[in-house]
Design a protein around this nucleic acid. Structure first.
Lengths: 124, 124
DNA sequence: ATCTTACTATCGAGCCTCGATATAATAGGC
DNA sequence: GCCTATTATATCGAGGCTCGATAGTAAGAT
């Protein structure tokens, strides 16, 4: 159990990465599209500022987790489509596992009366 | 529109706060004890650096979410015990709701929706 | 022609954690 | 009495990351 436990500092970053990688897992997309999809599919709950999204994409590409490829569609300007790599798939699976671990570990702290700690009153 | 949607930047901070407030909800504690309890009860998964914890406590106290009171036990140095205030209880309930919303909203992105069930691309 | 939309990109400011360091009081070893 | 470990609170600089603004390109609409 020598897990790196939990790094609250990078939590936001890792969640953003997980979101991007999860979208890219379904189909390759270019940056702008990622932002639009995330926002649409979550009814506006999740959003990506451009100044946040592009650095993420560049970082992930630099780490070999996604691969970008430029293309110029008939009508329109050049865009860079990103696809998940094998390493990215592995990384995503791991990140997902970590996320679920976090949620599970946090749970007993949030719900009291979980019958684990000292529950003085038998309300639950 | 009226939804603050989701702020990835403050996610770590808010999770830490939620953790602290949730512990304090069960019983008043002083700072050092919060750190010890969190670490013990999570088997070392969650930890609090002192440089992280105390600013959090001061912030929460400044916002009136927790109330600190100095006491000097027979043997030992002065300690400041923090107790959740009414405002803190409300805030915690809200933060908890937000956390669960986040988890719920994120879920469909993580688990492939309906369509993709088999990964059929070339021999894995 | 100009304005809007689609699209990629970068930079400074600001916030927050991390790790080191300081302070202080008591208990125990010697 | 002295030294160190333990309990406990507190602050500061460094670093990382998002946010919002800014910038630039190209196509299509007015």
């Amino acid at each position: 159990m020598d897990q790196p436990s939990f790094d609250s500092q990078s939590l936001g970053r890792r969640l953003n990465e997980l979101l991007v990688l999860s979208l890219l897992r379904r189909a390759p997309m270019h940056g702008y599209q990622v932002a639009v999809e995330v926002e649409e599919q979550s009814d506006g709950f999740f959003t990506f500022n451009h100044g946040t999204l592009y650095p993420i994409l560049h970082r992930l590409e630099g780490e070999g987790l996604i691969a970008g490829e430029w293309s110029v569609p008939d009508g329109g300007r050049a865009r860079k489509a990103y696809a998940l790599t094998e390493a990215g798939r592995t990384y995503r699976a791991d990140a997902l596992r970590q996320w679920k671990t976090l949620v599970g570990r946090l749970s007993p702290f949030l719900d009291d009366g979980a019958a684990v700690d000292k529950v003085s009153d038998g309300a639950a």
